[in-house]
Simulated scan of single mutants.
Amino acid sequence: MRRIWLAMVAVLLVIGAGMSAHAALRVISERNAARDRAMVAADARAAALGSTVFADQETAAPAAGVTGTIDLPDLPIPAGVALDSGVVPARPFSMAGASAIDRDRARQCLTAAIYYEAASEPDAGQQAVAQVILNRARHPAFPGTVCGVVYQGSEHAGCQFSFACDGAMARVPARAAWVRAARAAGMALAGYVYAPVGLATHYHTYAVTPAWNRSLVMTDVVGAHFFHRWKGYWGTSAAFNQRYVGGEPVPGPHRDIQPLAPPTPEMIAAAGAAAVAAASAGETAAVTPSVPVAVAKSSPVPSKPAAAVVTDMLPPESQILDRWKDSGKPLK
Score class of each variant (00 low, 15 high):
106 A>D: 13
19 M>A: 11
63 A>I: 12
118 A>G: 09
45 R>Y: 08
174 A>E: 15
204 H>D: 02
198 G>W: 10
196 P>R: 02
10 A>Q: 04
291 V>S: 12
212 W>V: 11
191 G>P: 14
34 A>L: 15
82 A>T: 15
157 A>I: 03
279 A>T: 15
216 L>R: 12
171 R>N: 08
55 A>Q: 12
206 Y>M: 06
171 R>L: 08
267 M>L: 10
270 A>W: 01
111 T>F: 00
285 A>G: 12
251 P>H: 00
33 A>C: 06
4 I>K: 06
316 P>E: 04
172 V>M: 12
8 M>Y: 00
52 T>I: 04
284 T>D: 05
197 V>K: 01
48 A>E: 14
78 P>S: 01
50 G>I: 10
313 M>D: 15
217 V>H: 01
252 G>W: 13
167 G>I: 15
215 S>G: 11
27 V>H: 07
103 R>Y: 06
249 P>W: 11
251 P>A: 00
91 R>E: 15
216 L>I: 09
261 A>Y: 08
179 V>F: 04
99 S>Q: 03
204 H>Y: 03
87 V>H: 02
323 R>P: 07
192 Y>L: 07
251 P>N: 00
205 T>G: 13
69 T>H: 09
177 A>H: 02
332 K>A: 10
165 C>E: 06
272 G>A: 14
245 V>L: 09
55 A>W: 07
179 V>Y: 03
295 V>M: 03
264 T>D: 05
76 P>N: 06
54 F>Y: 09
303 S>R: 10
243 R>T: 15
92 P>W: 03
277 A>D: 09
236 T>H: 01
202 H>Q: 09
75 L>P: 10
246 G>Y: 13
260 L>D: 13
268 I>D: 00
31 R>K: 05
123 D>S: 05
182 A>C: 03
329 K>F: 13
3 R>D: 10
184 A>E: 00
246 G>E: 12
329 K>I: 15
202 H>G: 04
125 G>N: 02
63 A>P: 10
276 V>I: 04
25 L>A: 03
198 G>A: 10
226 F>Y: 15
163 F>C: 09
283 E>L: 14
23 A>T: 01
59 T>V: 08
172 V>R: 09
23 A>D: 01
140 P>C: 07
11 V>H: 05
227 F>P: 11
154 S>M: 05
104 D>K: 08
117 E>K: 00
308 A>Q: 14
133 I>A: 08
208 V>L: 05
233 Y>M: 08
152 Q>M: 12
135 N>S: 11
296 A>V: 03
303 S>K: 11
318 S>R: 04
19 M>N: 10
287 V>Y: 09
53 V>W: 03
326 D>C: 09
